[in-house]
Every structure is written in structure tokens, then in C-alpha cells.
């Protein structure tokens, strides 16, 4: 079989598995069934049981990977749609996400360093608070592992959703804007879908916070690494 055929089969199979995972998530709408998690588990299980290497899978996988760049560019669209809210709330959203970005990057680096993890792992978990395609791009520029970065992003997403009510309660975050900025900055798209369940306002604030924090984290990460590493 030539590579073109293998590639096509892999792209097709990945798409079908993704659609199935999306359907599962519709029926069991909890954050643990996020399509990326189910799809990844199914594909890894198939590859391991047929003893297919990741490198073989990537013959087709790299075609999908190629679209990660435009996928990040496309995030300007949801931000543009919320531009009126963004204009009205520029100050609280921008300052809130920036504070969150600094806290997230520094505590991630410092705790991991303190625990004695190697640099490769530290750089992979540094961008954990931002949406996956951006986190992978950042991890790549600073010398982390993109697929590990994606796993840490998932942990931040699901963990944030699971503990959000507790955090709101302990820190008395009861304002819709505080909650939207908090969950969007910490738990990106997974958090945003949770915020959308609470209210439209919280959802749009969370969307804005997610995209803004992606930009802020990519800008300040190299500087903070220079200081903290």
C-alpha cells in the first residue's frame, strides 16, 4: 500500500471515530466524554491492539495536523461575534485574564520545578490553561512536547469544570463576569461549555476570556520562562 492510500484511510477513520465520539458526548454530556478524549482513547486502543506505531498513524494524521494553524486563526471569529461585550468589558476581562495567565504560568513552572521534574515536562505543562491548538503551538516554540501539552490542557479543562463550584464558593465569586473570566481563563473550551450551561452571558464572557488568554499567554510565556527557569 502506498502512503497516499494509508493517509486517506487514516484521515477517514479519524473523522468517523470523531463523529461517533461527538455523538456519544451528545448523549452523555459530561466533560469526561469530551470528543477529544473518547476519540483519542479509541484510536490509541486500535493502534496498540494492531501494533501500529504512532509514526505510521501520522502519515495521515499530519494532514489533519496541518489544519491546526488555521484552526487557531479561526478563533478570531467567536471573539469577533462577541465584540460588543468585549468592548463594554475590556478592562475587567483583560486585567482578569492577564492576572490569571501570570498566576497559571508561574505556579505551573515553580511547582513542577520544586517537585523536581525535567525541563521537557515543565515546558509541556506551562501553557496548560489555553485552548489545545494554541497550547501545542506555545509548547512547540518553548521546547515542550505538543502531545503532552494537549494532555495537560485536558486535565486543566476537566479539573476546572469539576471544581469550579467549589472555587466560586471559597473565593466568593458570584458575579457572572467573575465566573466567566475565571472559567474561561483556567479551563478554555471545556470550561466555556460549562459556563454556557449557566447562562448566555457567562458563556460569552468565557469565550472572550478563552481567546484573550490564549493571546496573553503566548505573549508572556517566553518572558516568564526566562525569569523563572
Amino acid at each position: 500500500m502506498n502512503n497516499l492510500l494509508i493517509g486517506l484511510i487514516i484521515v477517514g477513520a479519524t473523522y468517523v471515530i470523531y463523529l461517533a465520539a461527538k455523538n456519544i458526548h451528545k448523549k452523555v454530556a459530561i466533560s469526561f466524554t469530551a470528543p477529544v478524549i473518547t476519540s483519542t482513547i479509541i484510536i490509541v486502543a486500535i493502534l496498540l491492539s494492531f501494533e501500529i506505531s504512532y509514526e505510521t498513524y501520522m502519515i495521515g494524521g499530519k494532514w489533519i495536523n496541518e489544519l491546526l494553524g488555521p484552526a487557531v486563526v479561526a478563533l478570531a471569529y467567536p471573539l469577533y461575534r462577541e465584540r460588543d461585550v468585549l468592548k463594554r468589558l475590556t478592562v475587567p476581562i483583560l486585567i482578569g485574564t492577564t492576572v490569571g495567565a501570570v498566576v497559571g504560568i508561574s505556579t505551573g513552572i515553580l511547582l513542577a520545578r520544586f517537585a523536581g521534574f525535567e525541563d521537557l515536562l515543565i515546558y509541556s505543562l506551562t501553557p496548560k490553561s489555553v485552548t489545545t491548538p494554541v497550547a501545542m503551538a506555545i509548547a512547540e516554540t518553548i521546547g515542550g512536547v505538543t502531545s503532552l501539552a494537549a494532555v495537560f490542557v485536558m486535565i486543566a479543562g476537566i479539573g476546572g469544570v469539576l471544581f469550579s463550584s467549589l472555587v466560586y464558593k471559597i473565593f466568593r465569586i458570584d458575579h457572572r463576569i467573575g465566573r466567566g473570566v475565571g472559567i474561561g481563563s483556567a479551563s478554555h473550551a471545556i470550561g466555556t461549555s460549562k459556563a454556557l450551561e449557566s447562562s448566555m452571558v457567562e458563556g460569552s464572557i468565557s469565550t472572550i476570556a478563552m481567546v484573550v488568554s490564549a493571546v496573553v499567554v503566548s505573549v508572556i510565556t517566553p518572558g516568564l520562562i526566562a525569569v523563572l527557569m
Binding site: T97, G104, A115, G159, Y168
Partner: peptide, 28 residues
């Protein structure tokens, strides 16, 4: 331990960014 670190740091992000923006809103 990495999972714990990521989780803990995530909750700090949520708390700090949420408190900050809420504080600005209340002040305004």
C-alpha cells in the same frame, strides 16, 4: 504528581482571574 500540580495551578488561575475581574466590576 504532575496531574495534581496542573489541577492545583488551574484552580489558582480560576480564583485569581475571577476575583480580579469581579473586583473591577464591583468598583465600576
Amino acid at each position: 504528581l504532575l496531574v495534581v500540580i496542573v489541577l492545583f495551578s488551574t484552580l489558582l488561575v480560576m480564583a485569581s482571574s475571577g476575583i480580579t475581574s469581579q473586583w473591577i466590576m464591583h468598583r465600576e
